[in-house]
């Protein structure tokens, strides 16, 4: 008699108790696991600043995977940034940061320094750049902070620039690095984005020379990236297969920041 009791079917009451116990047990364990998982992530150490910095190590590791996967999956140079009629361009062009353009500059003496793959250095004056065909764009400039503004820029397209100065072999490399003359602000760009047909070395804003606070005499306009990548007052351009240093990537932002 006593041995066979175990095989008796459960009463409804027992079923209720058993299922409630299991459900709440699993739920509680998962909730505690979730809280600890979150605490682990939230309190995980910050990466050592190198090319990137300022982000929790596991987050950066995961994001380096997801952001690159998204870029590979979605990016196409055929995807053009939407353009607008000139009449819609802002007259009062927003300006956020002065890093890299605060040092005194002699505009007449300014030369763009391009370091080629073999180490050879080109020095290019603004007149040489202005002599080449001008490309204009009126598009919605997007800041990583969240604001956007329709702006009108004119200059030499980066594709025309590399063609004219015979930088074809350099464009086989993975990255372009640009720095201000005082080297206080610097950006790294993946080659695909740099060679996007709408990327400009801009010397005009609203049909006038770029003002000092917007990066005179020559600045980068790269519509497929957030504003922080649009370096003002370009001093030097270099090419590399390693990621060039990038001001905001060191401060916790994603390296690519592509749109």
């Amino acid at each position: 008699m006593t041995k066979k009791q175990a095989k008796k079917p459960l009463t409804t009451e027992q079923k209720i108790n058993r299922r409630t116990f299991i459900s709440f047990g699993v739920f509680g364990a998962a909730a505690i696991g979730g809280v600890f998982g979150w605490k682990w992530l939230y309190n995980s150490p910050e990466e050592v600043t190198a090319i990137t910095g300022g982000t929790r190590v596991p987050l950066r590791r995961a994001l380096n995977k997801t952001e690159i996967a998204v870029r590979r999956l979605l990016y196409s140079e055929k995807h053009l940034v939407r353009t607008y009629p000139k009449s819609m361009a802002a007259k009062n062009v927003r300006q956020n940061s002065d890093v890299g353009v605060e040092s005194p500059i002699d505009l007449a003496a300014w030369k763009l320094q391009v370091t080629k793959g073999n180490g050879e250095k080109l020095l290019i004056g603004i007149e040489d750049i202005k002599a080449l065909p001008k490309t204009e764009i009126v598009y919605d400039f997007k800041c990583v902070e969240g604001w956007d503004q329709i702006q009108y820029w004119g200059g030499l397209s980066f594709v025309d620039f590399v063609k004219h100065f015979n930088l074809d072999s350099e464009t086989k490399m993975d990255y372009v690095g640009m720095e201000t003359p005082d080297k206080l602000y610097y950006v790294g760009l993946d080659m695909d984005s740099a060679l996007h047909p709408q990327t400009l070395l801009a010397y005009e804003m609203n049909e006038k020379p770029v003002p000092l606070n917007h990066g005179a005499p020559l600045r980068l306009i790269i519509p497929v990236k957030y504003g922080v990548k649009n370096l003002k007052r370009i001093g030097s351009i270099s090419f590399s297969n390693q990621r060039p240093r990038d001001y905001w990537a060191e401060k916790g932002y994603d390296y690519f920041l592509g749109l």
């Binding site: 196409s76 995807h79 053009l80 940034v81 939407r82 919605d140 497929v224 592509g258």
Partner: peptide
């Protein structure tokens, strides 16, 4: 707003 150019 994440990829306004690629997901135009």
């Amino acid at each position: 707003i994440y990829k306004p150019v690629q997901c135009y």
